[in-house]
Computed example of a mutant assay.
Amino acid sequence: MGRSVRKRLLMVAAAGVALATIGVALPAAAAVSRPTTVAGQAPKAPKPTALTITGEGMADITVTAKEKPQLFGDLLEEVNFMAGAGGAHSQIAAPKKSTLGKKFAVVVHYDDKPRYAYDLYPMASGGPKAFRPAAQPDKKKTTAVWFLGRMTMSEALRIAGAPIPEKPDVMSGGIGGGERVIPEDSLPNGRDLDTLLAELRRLVLLNGGVVLVLALMVAGVALIVRQRTR
């Protein structure tokens, strides 16, 4: 093979290496220029932001998670067990309309858009009842189902402003959901739970101090008696 042929082959090979290098470098540069995302980080799921309550003979009530987070959370617990396929353990047959009492319609909003709607009957015979309509604000298909409501339903709605008689003896969350925390203002003498626990701790420490002093006194007396009997 002549020297000129080898030179041409070397030039062709060098050109191929250069093209391959450029082909690898361009996608890498494009990837660097594009905005990157954290690996494995999924988009944040939307959260409920507001809840509206409507009923006959009352003004509409709106409770937001930002302004009243505790009340919003309490109200959400009265309906969130009915979302999707949840709450199967508390589903019931449709009750008679004459036993339901006053209806309160609750709509849960996500980013100011209505998504879920429920009908609550806190004063129904035999305990609170709840209904999930088949037609929902977000146009998603679901089934119309009746549920046993939480025993705290009437108090949660009343605190929000619904015209419902007070039931201070309500303590349990009922069959529809979990337990409800006892309000702080229901403690004796108007003291909150933190104050009561703090006083209890002080009492325990005081009793412990008294026991320690008595133990030291007994030990001291025993030591004196022992020294005198030698």
Rank of each mutant, 00 (worst) to 15 (best):
R150W: 00
R150G: 15
R150Y: 00
M151E: 15
M151G: 09
M151T: 12
M151S: 15
T152L: 07
T152E: 11
T152Q: 14
T152S: 15
T152M: 13
M153D: 06
M153G: 01
M153N: 10
S154F: 02
S154C: 02
E155Q: 13
E155T: 11
A156E: 04
A156K: 00
L157V: 03
L157N: 01
L157K: 00
I159R: 15
I159D: 06
A160G: 09
G161K: 02
G161R: 03
A162D: 09
A162R: 00
A162L: 05
A162H: 07
P163G: 13
P163V: 10
I164E: 10
I164C: 00
P165Q: 12
E166P: 00
E166F: 09
K167M: 11
P168A: 06
P168M: 04
P168W: 04
D169A: 15
D169I: 06
D169K: 09
V170T: 12
V170I: 13
V170C: 03
M171E: 11
S172W: 13
S172Q: 10
G173W: 04
G173P: 08
G173E: 05
G173D: 06
G173H: 02
G173V: 07
G174T: 01
G174D: 02
G174E: 03
I175A: 11
I175S: 14
G176Q: 12
G176S: 14
G176T: 08
G176M: 10
G176I: 09
G176D: 12
G177Y: 10
G178V: 05
G178E: 13
G178M: 05
E179H: 09
E179V: 07
R180T: 09
R180H: 09
R180Y: 03
R180G: 07
R180L: 06
R180Q: 11
V181F: 10
V181L: 14
I182W: 04
I182N: 13
I182M: 13
P183R: 04
P183M: 05
P183D: 09
P183W: 06
E184Q: 13
E184D: 13
E184A: 13
E184W: 02
E184Y: 03
